[in-house]
């Protein structure tokens, strides 16, 4: 099968984890890894694996736009705002793993098919990726008046970007619960836990559905179906206990164990982001390739 050439911008933890995940893709071919620190572990690993390495930032890549059609941005929100303009001008499709939110929010099992033609896609936050599908799963049975989520991650897996602007996390996630999850009102809370050994990412979703009683059976079935869908691209995603339903309140507890590609297994919060980004990029790639085939067929 034909593959689409991709580049990774950023050679930190996220960028390096993406590199390992992309090795397994049938439709994406990683060609280039772009960083700014020649000594970084990520660039060293990329060189060892035989990828083209740029250690001076985005400019050198812009001079050779033929090296990749898709770009994953794993830098920072601030850097992405600049990158987004440059890459748009260069005609690239960009998968943005920063909280910059330049492009539309995408959560694969909820709204991926609506955004296959986009040129900049944002993944909200790790907490959003882990909880919005559950809110959607409840909402497709019974409208959700209020969704509140609590994300607990190990201190070790919270990078300096998240720490410097934690409001960005809570506010962006809350917006995602409303816009993509479909809740009338959303609220997000994040907690860092420094315990050793590091804890796995945990998420609690509380939803108040409209009406006095939640349709217990249908809601539980819908949640279980959603969990299975997510497990197809995040195998370590699982329910901690069966959903708890009291009146119109639904409580769902989720644990996310990472795949352990580059990031340690406890960092399910980072893994769910890279896994979602690869999943979306693959679907966009398939969509493009099938369109190309169709066009060739007409000629």
């Amino acid at each position: 099968m034909e593959k689409i050439n991709v580049a990774i911008l950023g050679s930190g933890n996220i960028g390096t984890d993406l590199m390992l995940k992309l090795e397994r893709s049938d439709v994406l071919q990683l060609t280039t890894v772009i960083g700014i620190d020649p000594q970084s572990e990520g660039l060293r690993m990329a060189r060892e694996k035989g990828y083209r390495v740029i250690d001076s930032g985005i400019q050198a890549f812009l001079e050779h736009p033929e090296w990749a059609d898709f770009v994953f941005d794993a830098t920072s929100a601030k850097a992405h705002i600049r990158h987004a303009k440059l890459l748009k001008r260069a005609g690239k499709v960009v998968f943005d793993l920063t909280p910059a939110a330049v492009g539309p929010f995408v959560v694969p099992p909820v709204n991926l098919t609506e955004h296959l033609e986009e040129t900049n896609i944002n993944f909200i936050t790790c907490g959003g990726q882990a909880t919005i599908p559950i809110v959607h799963a409840i909402g497709r049975v019974q409208p959700v008046a209020y969704a509140e989520i609590v994300v607990t991650i190990s201190s070790k897996s919270a990078g300096p970007g998240t720490r410097a602007n934690i409001d960005e996390f809570t506010e962006t996630t809350a917006r995602g619960l409303e816009k993509i999850g479909g809740a009338k009102r959303g609220k997000a809370i994040i907690i860092l836990n420094p315990a050793e050994p590091p804890i796995l990412m945990r998420n609690t979703i509380y939803a108040l559905v409209e009406g006095n009683e939640a349709a217990a059976r249908e809601i539980c079935d819908s949640i279980e179906e959603m969990v299975e869908t997510i497990r197809s691209y995040v195998p370590g995603y699982r329910l901690r206990t069966s959903p708890i339903i009291e009146g119109n309140k639904v409580t769902v507890m989720i644990e996310v164990e990472g795949a352990g590609d580059y990031l340690p297994k406890y960092a399910g919060n980072l893994d769910i982001m890279t896994a979602a980004a690869v999943k979306v990029a693959e679907e966009v790639a398939k969509h493009r390739l099938s369109k190309l085939l169709a066009e060739e067929g007409r000629r």
Partner: peptide
């Protein structure tokens, strides 16, 4: 389990 402040959701989780 070295649960920290704010992790009230762990109470039900652990109890269950």
């Amino acid at each position: 389990r070295k649960v920290v402040g704010g992790q009230e959701d762990m109470i039900v989780d652990v109890a269950a």
